[in-house]
Design a binder for these strands. Structure first.
Length: 511
RNA sequence: CGCGGGGUGGAGCAGUCUGGUAGCUCGCAAGGCUCAUAACCUUGAGGUCCCGGGUUCAAAUCCCGGCCCCGCAACCA
């Protein structure tokens, strides 16, 4: 069986889930559902990154132990994804014991092979940012973030010999042009690699940072973010067993936003090389949601929290907007106006209304009982079916390139056609002539097929809606959704009366 | 020479990699229908695809040069 391994980044527990986290997680979930429907065995990993100074400090500020604090925020993430119905297969925490052990074993292995060495590092350090600054980066000698003068620190750190793998990484990127995609990000990485790579500082002395995983070969130091966080992608699979790792790792597809491109496109592959592990299959990079400035910047409405969106608009409507509105890889604007616009135009008016009118007619004319399909189809009938077959083929093509917006566009073009078909065939007029009742039954049968096929095609994107539609059509199983056009509804099969799936939103609630 | 993104009908955006009648949503105008969530359907108005060169039978799309706008600040994906 074909497999794929999907990962979101590990979310840092210094903040609660917001729009960015939600987008990455939702595309991961959509892909997982999509692949599963294609008969591909998909494993989805998400989780939380919990070590580091910022967490230790935040915990202290809350009068808590770091672990207790991390437990709380990690729990919020997990509960959020659960409430959003995210179909993750494993939720990893960097504080999990198996992860700590595995990180240590990798560090030891690379240390033994000579790619980790003890060196000295000095520079301007900002405690707020938990990072060193070069003089060039400082503004008036101050950290641009915190407006505070950083302290000069010189300390002994362990370094990963990343420079040694620079050429191998370039070769890998050349050999597989879509290793990092879309292409703009690959170009960015290659541009960065034109300069000599420096070695990577991977530890912090315990005296300064205690909340981390101790180095196995020096208990006075703990690992600093990279080896701790990135390795989760492997440790989670190893935790499930060597067979699991062997089965999924070669098909690893990381999903990230552009801000963490460098660690994932440069540090991570060189770390894998040093650890003697194969590279991931693809690094998939998306852009940012840019908040509409001005209007909402001062009000609470500016913070997009997934559970609020669920409550206000419904989870599927929110998912639809995110998937339809952003071009994968590029930035997109987020505004409630655009959100409401999309929901009304696409979900309420086009699709929801299609379902309503078809089910209403089926109910009114035939008490919900599906009528038989004749052997001789009219040209319009065949066109309708072709339109949906084409949409399905197009969707497949676009999903392979992570072009969610185009996949949905293709489906909606078929849905539009179904609305047009109703006007052209005018079953509501034909029904006035009792001699035409058989034809009306056929038209509605075809229309029910558009809904049944749409339900299947929509399911990865709008899982809740797909479930409701399945119930409305009285389709017993997901497998039945996949039956060919005209081969599912037996004469007399009863479908339910219509239900408003997506209520129109009359005014955008501001503030 | 910091890095990156972008400039396409009134608004917001696809399309640009793989040149070949410029497309979508909203808005606007006229008409149709009445099954439906005042939804749906048809037609129309509206575009120098930032500018200038080049390549080509053909450029929004490829090449060169220039102009302009935006982010690199949060809750950071």
């Amino acid at each position: 069986m074909e497999r794929i391994y999907l990962t979101t980044p590990l979310y840092y527990v210094n903040a609660e889930p917001h729009l960015g986290h939600t987008y990455t997680t939702i595309i991961a979930d959509t892909l997982k559902r999509y692949y599963r429907q294609q008969g591909i065995d998909a494993f989805l990993l998400t989780g939380t990154d919990e070590h580091g100074d910022k967490i230790a400090q935040a915990a202290k500020a809350n009068g808590m132990e770091p672990k207790a604090y991390a437990d709380r925020i990690s729990g919020v993430f997990r509960a959020t994804w659960d409430e959003c119905g995210i179909a993750y297969d494993h939720f990893i925490r960097t504080t999990d014991e198996y992860h700590r052990r595995f990180v240590q074993s990798v560090l030891q292995k690379i240390y033994d092979s000579g790619d980790i060495y003890f060196g000295e590092y000095g520079g301007f350090y900002c405690y707020g940012c938990e990072r060193f600054y070069t003089e060039k980066e400082l503004v008036d000698g101050k950290c641009p973030d915190h407006q505070k003068e950083p302290s000069y620190i010189s300390e002994k750190n362990y370094f990963f010999r990343m420079s040694k793998y620079q050429q191998r990484l370039i070769d890998a990127l050349e050999a597989k042009p879509d290793l990092v995609r879309p292409e703009r990000y690959r170009s960015e990485v290659l541009a960065f690699l034109r300069e000599p790579l420096e070695d990577l500082s991977i530890s912090r002395p315990k005296s300064r940072l205690e909340w981390g995983i101790p180095l196995p070969f020096d208990s006075d130091h703990v690992t600093y973010v990279w080896f701790d966080a990135l390795i989760n992608y492997v440790s989670a699979l190893k935790h499930k067993g060597e067979e699991t790792f062997a089965a999924y790792w070669p098909k690893a597809n990381h999903l990230i936003a552009k801000d963490i491109l460098k660690p994932h496109a440069i540090y991570w592959p060189t770390m894998l090389m040093a650890a003697g592990l194969p590279l991931y299959d693809h690094l998939n990079v998306h852009g940012y949601w840019v908040m509409d400035s001005g209007k909402m910047s001062k009000s609470l409405g500016n913070v997009v929290r997934p559970l609020d969106m669920k409550k206000r608009y419904g989870l599927d409507a929110f998912r639809y907007f995110l998937l339809r509105e952003m071009v994968f890889g590029q930035d997109a604007n987020f505004s409630f106006e655009a959100l409401v616009n999309r929901i009304n135009a696409d979900l309420a008016n086009n699709f929801g209304n299609l379902v309503s009118r078809v089910l209403a007619m089926q109910q009114r004319y035939f008490s919900g009982a599906v009528q038989p399909l004749g052997a001789d189809w009219l040209k319009q009938d065949a066109e309708l079916k072709d339109k949906f077959l084409n949409a399905e083929a197009e969707m497949k093509q676009h999903m392979a390139g992570l072009q969610f917006h185009r996949a949905l566009e293709a489906l909606w073009s078929a849905i539009d056609h179904a609305n047009r078909y109703i006007v052209q065939t005018a079953p509501f007029s034909l029904f006035k002539d009792s001699a035409q009742h058989r034809r009306v039954g056929e038209i509605l049968h075809h229309l029910l097929e558009t809904i049944r096929i749409s339900t299947r095609l929509l399911a990865p994107f709008l899982p809740e809606t797909a479930g409701e539609l399945q119930a409305l059509l009285a389709v017993p199983s997901e497998a039945s959704l996949a039956a060919p056009w005209g081969k599912f509804f037996a004469p007399g099969h009863k479908v339910l009366p219509p239900k408003v799936l997506f209520p129109r939103i009359e005014a955008a609630p501001e503030e």
